[in-house]
């Protein structure tokens, strides 16, 4: 498998409320996405996962680093060429109520995307609209409805259909189901699985819902304060979380089974995420980490290989970790 999308040492920062200071929302992140793969990106709010996604599609301007799509460095392009290259990477927004224009009908919204994609003939566009609606599991009769008349799940499908109009190869999905009702989440999640299967679309799935990501993604990245702290196959990361943050994050998720939930006594992460304006020295997680030692404050942890393809940025990752836990 070859990487279709590579993000190398990306840094995106925002000016802070205080003058002269900047917040590094994404701090030297490298990730990649293979053809036809669904990859999860998880973390708490403010960890920079959305900013990373937005930087990839050009909604935020990165300070440094590269976004390489299909072997082409997007930073080397500009103007029309850049817009056309970027079209292959589409973004699915969290809120389907805000991502569609209320004043457009379903047909108009998708038609506009087709015009942008350069489909000149009106009849061809009509045919393609029907095809796209069909692809996302909607009846073609919704074409003349205004988007505001539809439910959240339907609107999210239309937003997806609109993205598909420009024939993307990668979808960056930013919490695509968290605004939807429980009973419909599965429908939209299955749609992503279908799209990957039928169209070969790769997905970067940004979410805070760990269980959802586990089932959908073959690989997963865990972010904390703008950095990737752990990455690996979902199987590995969920079964053998090797960064203390990932462990505590997974342990915090309540179980829907009351018997296990009552017995479970999750180790609580104490405190809250430090301000990204002024992150701790050394390891960013050390202020909340139950394992932290003095050395953690001195140098940034190096990414350690736990097993092949499974990495964690913690000095105790891998073999050392088990010893440390049993000692603690």
């Amino acid at each position: 498998m070859s990487a279709i999308l590579e993000v190398e040492h990306l840094v995106t920062s925002f000016p802070s409320a205080k003058r002269g200071q900047t917040i590094k929302a994404v701090n030297d992140v490298s990730i990649h996405l293979n053809q036809g793969e669904i990859v999860g990106l998880v973390g708490e709010s403010g960890c920079g996962k959305s900013t990373l996604g937005r930087s990839i599609v050009g909604l935020e301007k990165p300070q440094s680093g590269r976004v390489v799509f299909d072997g082409v460095d997007l930073g080397s392009l500009s103007g029309r060429r850049l817009r056309e290259a970027r079209r292959a990477v589409q973004y699915v927004f969290q809120d389907p109520y805000a991502s569609l224009n209320d004043r457009q009908t379903v047909g108009e919204a998708i038609n506009e995307a087709l015009i942008i994609a350069g489909l000149r003939s009106q009849t061809e566009r009509e045919g393609r609209i029907a095809e796209l609606l069909n692809q996302v599991g909607l009846a073609t009769t919704v074409r003349d409805r205004f988007t505001r008349e539809l439910s959240g799940g339907q609107r999210q499908r239309i937003a997806i259909a609109r993205s598909l109009a420009v024939e993307p190869r990668v979808l960056i999905c930013d919490e695509p189901v968290s605004a939807l009702d429980l009973s419909i989440r599965a429908q939209v999640m299955n749609l992503f699985l279908d799209l990957r299967e039928k169209l070969g679309v790769s997905c970067l799935f940004i979410a805070h819902d760990l269980a959802l990501v586990r089932q959908a993604a073959s690989r997963v990245y865990v972010m904390y304060l703008g950095k990737v702290v752990e990455s690996g196959s979902s199987e590995e990361v969920y079964r053998n979380p090797s960064h203390p943050y990932t462990q505590l994050l997974l342990a915090s998720v309540p179980e829907a089974d009351p018997a296990t939930e009552r017995r479970r006594n999750p180790p609580l992460i104490t405190g809250e995420i430090p301000s990204p304006t002024n992150p701790p020295s050394g390891c960013f997680f050390r202020t909340r980490c139950p394992l932290s030692v003095e050395a953690c404050a001195e140098a940034e942890p190096v990414s350690q290989e736990v097993s092949s393809m499974h990495k964690a940025a913690c000095r105790f990752a891998g073999g050392l970790f088990a010893k440390r836990v049993s000692a603690a």
């Binding site: 599609v57 909604l59 029309r80 817009r83 056309e84 079209r87």
Partner: peptide, 22 residues
């Protein structure tokens, strides 16, 4: 800053379209 305008940018709409049509 509305997501539906951001969506247009991601779709690769030209500045002319974004400015004059929307």
């Amino acid at each position: 800053n509305k997501p539906h305008m951001e969506a247009l940018r991601v779709l690769g709409a030209s500045p002319v379209r974004i400015y004059f049509v929307h």
